[in-house]
Amino acid sequence: MTTTILTLVGSLREGSINRQLAEAAAVHAPDSVDVVTFDALNDVPFYNEDIDNDADRPQAADALRAAAADADAVLLVSPEYNGSMPAVLKNAIDWLSRPYGAGALSGKPTAVIGSAFGQYGGVWAHDEARRALGVAGATVLDEARLSIGSSITRFAELHPKDDAEVSGLVTGVLLALAGAAEPIAA
């Protein structure tokens, strides 16, 4: 049985280190894990309950919800912007939390990883994302953590997929997500 893990990347820049970290997850995923990245977060408008109905809901929001509903688990890959998570990830969580109590994240195993320029690797952003995911109804795997500091120097000449330590840690997070998703799929 294959476990599908939906990856949401908080940096919209094509060459971002966090996007590269998501690529590393896809490259180093165990054979039983399929990592799928949702690449249209920039098309999802800010959550507005007035447009969250069958007549007005934007197609990009429906696509995001469908991708999350089809996945067995969700992985957020987040930088830290001004001490917090990027608005694009918070917006994705908002869309995925609705309808309240029955959103696409409800009961879904989730984890947050990422990298940032500072020495702590985005820990504040990752903690805020975990809290928002929990409030949204996700099952947050607090033990599946990875915050990589000093990203600009660490990955100046090395893609995260080629960093043996990072690759091993990312694989560990994916295995934790897959393990948490197995009982749900059974």
Rank of each mutant, 00 (worst) to 15 (best):
128 E>S: 07
171 T>E: 15
121 G>M: 11
155 F>T: 02
181 A>H: 05
157 E>N: 15
49 E>D: 13
104 A>E: 15
54 D>V: 12
163 D>H: 08
75 L>H: 12
97 S>E: 03
74 V>Q: 11
110 T>F: 04
140 V>E: 05
144 A>S: 09
21 L>E: 09
91 N>P: 13
109 P>Q: 15
152 I>F: 07
78 S>L: 06
88 V>T: 06
47 Y>C: 00
86 P>K: 01
6 L>H: 02
13 R>Q: 09
124 W>R: 14
104 A>P: 04
17 I>H: 08
10 G>F: 09
98 R>K: 12
51 I>C: 00
54 D>H: 00
148 I>F: 08
118 G>Q: 05
69 A>L: 10
28 H>A: 06
125 A>K: 03
41 L>R: 12
137 G>V: 08
87 A>Y: 09
34 D>N: 15
87 A>W: 10
183 P>L: 08
11 S>A: 03
167 S>E: 10
20 Q>F: 00
74 V>L: 15
9 V>F: 11
91 N>E: 14
26 A>Y: 02
56 D>I: 12
118 G>M: 00
16 S>K: 00
51 I>W: 10
174 L>E: 11
43 D>Q: 14
132 A>V: 02
51 I>H: 05
38 F>C: 00
100 Y>F: 06
147 S>Q: 00
33 V>I: 15
61 A>C: 08
109 P>H: 11
39 D>H: 13
34 D>V: 07
66 A>L: 11
169 L>V: 01
109 P>A: 11
11 S>K: 00
9 V>E: 12
59 Q>W: 01
115 S>P: 02
21 L>I: 12
26 A>N: 01
88 V>L: 03
92 A>K: 00
